[in-house]
């Protein structure tokens, strides 16, 4: 009997150890917290359907100089590209503690604006140079947005694709969710002026004139999705999909549609 009790104690102790390690691993998860979309009235599609309207603002940086966007264990990575939350006029929210995991309501319209501060190259798969899955399959592009004057420096235009040799990054939502009609959104983000990006980086900041892409998507049924960048922008490893591309919360995140 004593032996059985001692064996039982070993089992309890063992599971205690496992629980401890599990808690440690779970706590060490370098994932940023959830960001909810901001409510903004209603949105009517060209077909005349009306949805509750929400907005999300994001930036894409040539480096990850502030860590909060990438969760507790993530941290700054000056040699990695990254996404991050943006203010109303594309200003970097350097203090934000969340950044890449989004919660949006189901059956709503979400307008996403992305300021792209990085330069670019030719995309390996030109499938992702087209705007896909947004309302009207289009996006609104401002090739130079003046972040000081809070105004468009060039005229906004509606685009369905961008030249495949001028892609900075992409914002692509896809996923695991089990719905028959899954959400799929892919929007290419054009490169900013190469020289300006380099000059700004050397000066320790970001270019004053990023490109700005605005598009609206309809969220569909609830489910778990992810988004990531489909432009290979990691380090020099195979297919340039390592480092920032293969670490959660830099060039990827969750996209959670809630009922």
């Amino acid at each position: 009997m004593k032996r059985i009790l001692a064996a039982l104690a070993t089992v309890v102790l063992g599971f205690g150890v496992i629980a401890g390690i599990g808690t440690y691993v779970a706590a060490a998860k370098n994932d940023s917290g959830l960001t909810s979309a901001t409510a903004a009235g209603t949105f009517t599609t060209p077909e005349g359907k009306t949805y509750p309207h929400y907005t999300l603002n994001m930036n894409v940086y040539p480096n990850s100089t502030f860590g909060g966007h990438h969760g507790a264990g993530g941290g700054a990575h000056p040699d990695w590209v990254s996404y991050g939350l943006a203010g109303e006029h594309g200003e970097p929210l350097t203090e934000a503690s969340t950044g890449t995991n989004f919660v949006v309501p189901a059956h709503s319209a979400v307008t996403i604006t992305i300021w792209q501060y990085d330069s670019g190259e030719t995309i390996t798969n030109d499938f992702f140079a087209k705007v896909r899955g947004t309302v009207g399959n289009t996006a609104t592009l401002v090739e130079r947005y003046d972040t000081k004057a809070h105004a468009n420096a060039t005229e906004a235009k509606t685009v369905t694709q961008i030249p495949s040799d001028g892609v900075g990054h992409t914002f692509t939502i896809h996923g695991l969710a089990d719905a028959n009609n899954q959400v799929f959104v892919s929007v290419p983000l054009p490169m900013s002026n190469d020289d300006e990006v380099t000059a700004a980086e050397e000066a320790g900041g970001f270019t004053q004139f990023p490109t700005m892409m605005t598009f609206t998507i309809i969220t569909g049924d609830e489910g778990e999705y992810v988004w990531n960048c489909e432009f290979p922008c990691g380090d020099g490893t195979v297919a340039r999909f390592g480092s920032a591309m293969s670490t959660m919360s830099y060039m990827s995140g969750h996209w959670i549609v809630k009922g």
Binding site: T124, N125, F127, K130, R132, G133, T172, H174, Q182, F184, S186, V226, N228, E230, A239, F241, M245
Partner: peptide
């Protein structure tokens, strides 16, 4: 069929392309 980390895309005849 083209696989890319972490999405599939499909090219058909007549230039049609799709993610589904």
């Amino acid at each position: 069929v083209t696989g890319q980390q972490w999405a599939w895309n499909y090219d058909y005849a007549d230039g049609a392309r799709s993610e589904v």
